[in-house]
Design a protein around this nucleic acid. Sequence first.
RNA 1: GGGCCCGUAGAGAAGCCCGGAGUUCUCGUCUCCCUGUCACGGAGAAAAUCGUGGGUUCAAAUCCCAUCGGGCCCGCCA
Length: 468
Amino acid sequence: MKRTLVAEAGKKVGESIKVCGWIKTYRSHGKIIFVDLRDISGVLQVVILPELPSEVLEIAKNMRTEWVVEIVGKINKRPGGTQNQNLTTGDIEMTAENISVLSEAKTIPFDINTDGYEVNEEMRLKYRYVDLRRERLKRNLIFKQEFLHFVRTFLKDRGFIEIDTPSLTKSTPEGARDFLVPSRLQPEKFYALPQSPQQYKQLLMVAGLEKYFQIAKCFRDEDPRADRQAEFTQMDLEMSFVQEKDVRDLIEELLIETVRVVAPDKKIQEIPFPVITYQEAMEKYGIDRPDLRKDKSDKDLLAFCWIVDFPFFEKDKEGEWTFTHNPFSAPKPEFIDDLLKKKNIEKILTTQYDIVLNGWEIGGGSIRSHTPEILEAVFEIIGYKKDRIKSSFGHMMEAFGYGTPPHGGIAWGVDRILSILLNENSIREVIAFPKTGDSRDLMMDTPSAVDSKQLEELHIKTVAPKKK
RNA sequence: GGGCCCGUAGAGAAGCCCGGAGUUCUCGUCUCCCUGUCACGGAGAAAAUCGUGGGUUCAAAUCCCAUCGGGCCCGCCA
């Protein structure tokens, strides 16, 4: 007999079907036993009556919560007065005919019939596979799929091509700290995991793909926060022959449509999204990601805004010029001359735009420099010598010499957007297997030591002594 | 690298400030009873090196120091 999902059981009244799942609750009344069976689709009440053969009854008496079972039985309308309004299958129940135990379960380490906020995250992360049995977390993961599915369809319909880019790539030490991967075939050389597909997506523009997007895993070896993980998901997008407003308009439409379709309970406070300059934001709100919600107690209110006209450069702690966002960004057109002549550096504004939602930076992008001269001038301002520019970014300069369209794009922090849409305070609640505050995986016990043979193959001869 | 908060039966909390017998509550677990419950109900039971180590004290879950683990934040995050 083929297995039926419990959500489909309502269509099978009068029939015998087979259901499989976990025992959510077990209520024995002595002679009669009620079992709530949970599968991915929902919960179904199974009634176990004393008329069953003794060997089946024996199994039923010994079952415990979270055991995995297969039950064959007849679906009936519930007797009058025993319907349960709180259950979508509350009008029906299964009368068990046969039961097999597929897997026994130890007593689970914490209650999963709650939202789980009350349980230590240490426990939840160590037993994440149990934690994920919660309704809330399952709902979050399914929502993530619906969200991404809508985004993919929207972009494909507008001619965007989804292209994957390498995860083993080149270290770019000027940004966040890279995760490094030692090369076995090239002794003493390293790959780096991408902080973002930035360079590849620009090279796809040089290649003439014109409109690219990707749901990309990105990696940054910096200290995590409630809204930051070492490993996270970006919606990364780039398009050719566009200016700032073209990208912003597209993204604004995409965000509005996505919210309308996947989160219809949410209200967007202001459309079109307010556009605020960096200077204005700092003067008025003291922050470049203001929370513009008029009623912060309203869980369903979404206040998007764009922050634009960021300064291109700022002084770092040593007093050297550094870029505020992205060295590949183009200056606003009226500052190109100053940039090339390297004067009035502090006044140069970039085409960078950030998208902010309820006080969280959920994305950022810019129009890019598409001529080697401008890119080179940027690197010179931040003090890079010619040979370093060549070794780190020579491939970009060279590529730009082969016919490069003006282009620009954006990247979203998908986990952050999902957290806000789902009213979660941490992105860990929308990631299946998140890491702790010091980037450890308590379930897998990662990072972990490796075999000395593995190290030898990677030409790593010495291991730093453990800190006392 | 720095600041703050937390750690007590399987889970969650109270107790700590103001030291006096491992005391209490909710959930779970186990045993028995129960034929319409749905967070079933009833009776009973087991379960704790009070994160770890040291110190002060007649006496430490409680005060002090160190350390480990978790969280939040600053730095950092092109």
